[in-house]
Design a protein around this nucleic acid. Structure first.
Lengths: 190, 190
DNA sequence: GGTTTTCATTGATTTGAGTCAAGAAATTAA
DNA sequence: TTAATTTCTTGACTCAAATCAATGAAAACC
């Protein structure tokens, strides 16, 4: 499937766009490439573009002077924009780093705002995004409350097997909030 | 200030309503009272009303068979609805319990939808709510990443002193993710 | 006002994850 | 293919928080 087709497929199945709006929308995206280990987004920056992951793996994490914590991994084609930063023009608190070479499709905020003004579905898109973010955050919060690190790991085995195939274990450990040595011991137990 | 005035003040300062819409909106709220220790919301229920806290203290928490974790306390006048559950008619994962006698003002979902259809500002209200929820969730997530339990407690001392005056320490401990004995020892250190 | 219950503190002990360090395995580079 | 680097595993030890248990303080109740 071409990159444009993937975007089209993603949008038409996931978002309430009409065909006319969707085709114009996708046509305005541009290609962008990153090398493994490059940072796509840095804490303190303000999002100035919509970014759709087309190929490769991205980890998202918090970092301070003495530590890091992974909060998500992106493998499938999906948006990897910090929508809060994008929508309110506020600095992000997150980093995004390429775990492989990465292709993304990007749309400048300017183009996006033009689009919003022209089509109702653009506004609906942003609404939908925020509602889903709330649902995801609350679900994650509950999952972390209800499960131990070991249970979370079993959950990843079941529901995100591609993570375990393609992401180093020390990154998974950070995502689970434990040290790599501890994850190694959990794996031995299982 | 009367209860209606509080609602009016809250909305007009916080949300982009026009005066006409706002007055009609507030007029349709009804009063409701809860006793200390009563549950306002139970995991598994679906929100069928907008709920505005007018007086009293509410704790919000997750619970499973063997444990609980507090995730928020509400003291000031503000909405205490699970908007995800309300908007999507999905069961909530949260509990809300009164730590004191409580007065709330409620609006049925039916009345709210009527309102949405009549006034643009109603739609904007829900949009704003979700955008703020995302911002709050992300901020909380970062705060918990960057700080130890002791630092979080110092932060509460500084920014939420009313919590420490009015909420039992074992509930604060649960909010911080530690045991009451540990919080007691942290307090001795400070 | 006195009693009962709840909440907070303190001490002694246990426990599970972190730390440190070494070596094995796997991946990448030459 | 071999060498170099990175990642994963394993063991010994440390430490911070949980647990267990008892007491003291405060609040709620009659």
């Amino acid at each position: 499937m071409s990159e444009t087709d993937k975007l089209f497929f993603f949008f038409s199945s996931e978002f309430p766009f009409n065909k006319e709006g969707l085709e114009e929308f996708i046509g305005t995206f541009k290609n962008k490439k990153y090398k493994k280990n490059e940072l796509i987004l840095k804490c303190g920056e303000t999002e100035k573009e919509l970014r759709f992951l087309d190929k490769g793996i991205v980890r998202e994490f918090y970092a301070s002077s003495d530590k890091e914590k992974n909060i998500n991994f992106y493998i499938d084609t999906e948006f990897i924009t910090d929508f809060s930063s994008f929508t309110h023009s506020t600095p992000t608190k997150k980093f995004q780093e390429c775990l492989t070479d990465v292709n993304v499709r990007v749309l400048s905020k300017h183009s996006f705002l033009d689009f919003i003004n022209k089509y109702d579905c653009g506004k609906l898109f942003i609404e939908t995004i925020f509602q889903r973010l709330v649902a995801k955050n609350e679900n994650d919060e509950f999952i972390h409350f209800a499960n131990t690190a070991e249970e979370l790991y079993l959950d990843i085995m079941k529901n995100k097997p591609e993570w375990l195939k393609q992401i180093p274990q020390y990154h998974i450990a950070s995502y689970l909030g434990i040290k790599p040595e501890t994850l190694s011991r959990i794996r031995k137990r299982i």
